[in-house]
Write a protein that binds this DNA or RNA. Structure first.
Lengths: 168, 168
DNA sequence: ATTAATTTTCAATAATTTTTGAAAGTTTAA
DNA sequence: TTAAACTTTCAAAAATTATTGAAAATTAAT
């Protein structure tokens, strides 16, 4: 496969993967484009490469910055802003884990905690089933939470080394 | 909090979480409803409880069955079909992991493998960056893959016991 | 201060996804 | 069979989400 084709395929694949995980396709594609770009790109270049509008490029790049996956760069003597993606896969994974934990898991744990205090009658099947289900999900979530906390702090080699050693 | 309110909140929260993870909100809500239902429910009851149409309920329940999260039940002497959700959180997590691995990670690994064979010039910065990025993602994906394979086969207590022991 | 370059905003539009509901299909029992 | 009970399908409609593009805002050099 030629480089140009491979780059296209990578961008497309990353975009599809993103959309399957609740991330807007274009955002994932811009991320992919920057991931395989040796140098920081301008908004103009991103627009051009993916055939998207200025507004879309601007908002998408802003979102990627908010996710901690992309940084602005300024070249001396130049007015334009350049955008550059973190390239290390482990750093990306940790960043995504951290953001999704903050946005989704932490609020979920809070709700589950509230729900665990529901009042009711121990003889009531609905009440019992509710409590049992919530408790099971809470326990699982707590384990995921601890694992993510560890991951977010960890070195890649230590983290996978530890996990894969057990599983061998 | 009263049971009725707590049940509503649980359904709403599960629906929101689902939509953040690329799962249609209604599908997650139907799942939530069945998760906290002590008995299997009919299509009619699902429609009623969530105010959704028959067509929607039917398709959503079919999808949940395809995900391995819900089963059909038949009550003796009754014509209607009843739907019942697997209640164990670990079993649910494994089932979701298995399906998403099959639908998303396995195809991704296949593409990454193809992309690793891209032809090009070692002196070309675009080529080098591409190869490096793809290699990094491939390595991470392989580790996730092995972890999921282990998880899919594992007993809950062994899995978390092993992981959390390392991280303590 | 003025202007030209660049970035940001956001109402309007387009695209996509989800839902509806009625018709068609299927199953079971009389 | 017939018919009632129930399930499935799917084209059309509704709802949601993403994108555009031009105007407004900002920035920096003259």
């Amino acid at each position: 496969m030629e480089l140009a084709e491979a780059r296209q395929k990578f961008i497309e694949t990353w975009g599809k993967l993103g959309s399957e995980w609740g991330i807007n396709r274009t955002m994932a594609q811009v991320h992919a484009l920057l991931l395989i770009a040796p140098e920081a790109l301008t908004t103009e270049e991103v627009m051009e490469a993916l055939s998207i509008s200025r507004g879309n490029a601007n908002m998408t790049l802003r979102d990627l910055i908010n996710w901690g996956l992309v940084e602005k760069q300024h070249k001396p003597g130049e007015r334009k802003e350049y955008f550059f993606a973190e390239k290390d896969a482990w750093t990306i994974a940790r960043q995504v884990a951290q953001e999704r934990k903050k946005r989704e898991l932490d609020p979920l744990l809070k709700v589950l905690n509230e729900l665990s205090e529901v009042k009711g009658n121990e003889k009531d099947a609905e009440y019992k089933t509710f409590k049992t289900s919530v408790k099971g999900i809470t326990k699982l979530s707590a384990n995921v939470n601890k694992t993510l906390e560890t991951m977010i702090k960890a070195e890649e080699s230590w983290f996978w080394g530890s996990i894969l050693k057990i599983f061998k």
